[in-house]
């Protein structure tokens, strides 16, 4: 099979959708935070927490959806911490975010070691299985690429639609978008800026954690320390690439993942190029995406600017 033919195989696109799923959750989560004016660099750590808690819940005997819920809640808890530090206290969102990532990652490692002191290799769980959507999965090509995935992948797509609907079609969404552009205007409407921003960060962080949980509960079946492996940072790049719009971000995540799936297959047919260069591509691609979009980027105006009542 040559390099061009691969692009037209359903298996490539099925893999792309699978690789995209955690990124979709994470990108969506970061997008919600940033739309409300809060940069959340805790994303990498929050994904790690979600990956662990979701998996651990199932390992302790919970069912898979309970695991997803626990992951979302633990993500929201770290979101609350980040929100409290950067919204009412107005601390540097950069420093706090990095701190949250370090703390979340360290806590996860600690809890893992305390809870499972004896294990040498990470224990496995029964992860989500692919579920073929009736009728749709019979569509040639599209069926096997899109409609034969695990339930969490479907949830990712549904979430994009849901978030887009809430952001653009509801008063709550309007308030969230406005608090990222002009918090004083939100205040003037009688809405509490602090509560709104913290709420958005918590919801966003819950999405990030579910993205992490996808890794341990759907993509693989056990937990490793470094398994998030920069996906959080890539999601931040994807938010910029998607111009802070859920639909575009979804497209960006799928494109990105398709490229990633493609390079994995290319590695097997192109000889002579060390594998490390293929592995670098996603990160290089993220940087390129940032460069191409940065000029046109319509940043939320109040992104990273703390709001203090009565100050201009």
């Amino acid at each position: 099979m040559d390099a061009i033919e691969i692009v037209f195989t359903a298996s490539l696109w099925a893999a792309a959708i699978r690789i995209a799923s955690p990124l979709i959750f994470a990108t969506l989560g970061e997008l919600i935070c940033e739309r409300a004016g809060v940069l959340n660099l805790g994303i990498e750590g929050i994904m790690t927490v979600g990956a662990f808690t979701g998996w651990f819940t199932v390992y302790m005997g919970g069912d898979l959806w309970t695991g997803v819920m626990v992951a979302a809640l633990s993500g929201a808890a770290f979101g609350l911490l980040h929100g409290l530090l950067v919204v009412p206290l107005g601390l540097s969102q950069h420093v706090t975010g990095i701190g949250i990532t370090l703390l979340a990652t360290a806590l996860t490692s600690y809890v893992y070691r305390v809870a499972l002191p004896e294990v040498t290799s990470p224990p496995k769980i029964d992860p989500f299985q692919p579920w073929a959507v009736p009728i749709f999965s019979d569509i040639p090509f599209l069926g096997s690429a899109l409609f034969n995935q695990t339930p969490l992948t479907y949830l990712a797509f549904v979430s994009v639609a849901l978030v887009a609907y809430v952001l653009y079609r509801t008063p709550l969404g309007l308030a969230v978008r406005m608090v990222g552009e002009n918090p004083a205007a939100v205040e003037a409407q009688g809405i509490d800026v602090t509560v709104l921003r913290i709420g958005a960060v918590m919801v966003g962080s819950a999405f990030m954690a579910v993205g992490g949980a996808f890794l341990t509960m759907s993509a693989f079946n056990s937990f490793y320390f470094d398994m998030v492996n920069g996906r959080g940072w890539i999601a931040i790049a994807l938010v910029v690439f998607g111009s802070w719009r859920p639909g575009k971000a979804l497209l960006g995540a799928i494109l990105f993942a398709a490229f990633d799936a493609y390079q994995l297959r290319l590695q097997q047919i192109v000889a002579g190029i060390p594998y490390q260069f293929f592995l670098m591509l996603p990160y290089v691609l993220s940087i390129l995406a940032l460069i191409t979009m940065a000029r046109r980027a319509g940043y939320p105006r109040a992104l990273m600017i703390p709001y203090r009542k009565g100050e201009r």
């Binding site: 492996n229 670098m280 993220s286 940032l290």
Partner: peptide, 26 residues
């Protein structure tokens, strides 16, 4: 990239960590 194009350096420096580590591995 930050001064010329306004690209946020947090993400680019973070991503470079992964790129350089892979390069060292190579």
């Amino acid at each position: 990239l930050k001064t010329r194009f306004g690209v946020d350096e947090v993400v680019t420096t973070l991503l470079l960590n992964f790129i350089i580590l892979l390069f060292v591995s190579f």
